[in-house]
Design a protein around this nucleic acid. Sequence first.
DNA 1: TCCTTAGTTCAAAGGTCATTGAACAATTGG
DNA 2: CCAATTGTTCAATGACCTTTGAACTAAGGA
Lengths: 118, 118
Amino acid sequence: MTLPHPTADQISLPNVLAVLGDPTRLAIVRYLASKEGVPLNCSRFLDLCSKTNLSYHLAKLREAGVTRTEAVGTSRLITLRRDDLDRRFPGLLDSVIAAAGDDASLPAVGGHEIEVRA
Amino acid sequence: MTLPHPTADQISLPNVLAVLGDPTRLAIVRYLASKEGVPLNCSRFLDLCSKTNLSYHLAKLREAGVTRTEAVGTSRLITLRRDDLDRRFPGLLDSVIAAAGDDASLPAVGGHEIEVRA
DNA sequence: TCCTTAGTTCAAAGGTCATTGAACAATTGG
DNA sequence: CCAATTGTTCAATGACCTTTGAACTAAGGA
């Protein structure tokens, strides 16, 4: 079961830019890019805002075509739609992610990696 | 006399993306890029919206650090801050402009070039 | 079956954004 | 000086955005 996503050619440039213009969402995208290939579930991002608000931001990203959300059990697995974005807007995602890379003003997604006990 | 502009390092990525996320402003930037090096005055963009509204959008672009506005007589000369943007966010402007290049959904800045009479 | 976990939906509040017309300021040409 | 040109400022409007808590759904484990 998959939630509604735009097709690649329905992705709108102004909309993508507007959606990435929010610091919370930009932080989500930056983190997704840093773990690229690994589908992450929503709870990874709970540092950024409340659960309700996160649901809202992730829906915005999905509806803009920036992320893909797959429902698996009670979880949602989030991935970047890099292929579609690169095909549609070559170089855009990379330059945004690079620019966001050293932006201390963006909120950070804390370490929720599985801790290795000493 | 110059209007208030952010310095290069005051330019914020989320803010730039948000400002470019508006179709009217993206169309302005695309047109500025197509005439790069040539300072254009506001009236060039009157196809896009009312004079009042244009003033608002151009102020947004200036305050975000995307454009530079110089007052000359009663005119304002608008240029892209390409150097600052490229230094701050390498490749971003180019990929945005390239992506906007073939976007038919963006409003067009009509031909206000000086007509050569037949 | 019952409880927990994961996330969504809803309504409401408060904020910001885009757009408008009217009024204003400043420069320039006659 | 007078008038036209160029663009800004202001107040108002409606729309959309972000955030919140409460209530909800759906899946999984004990």
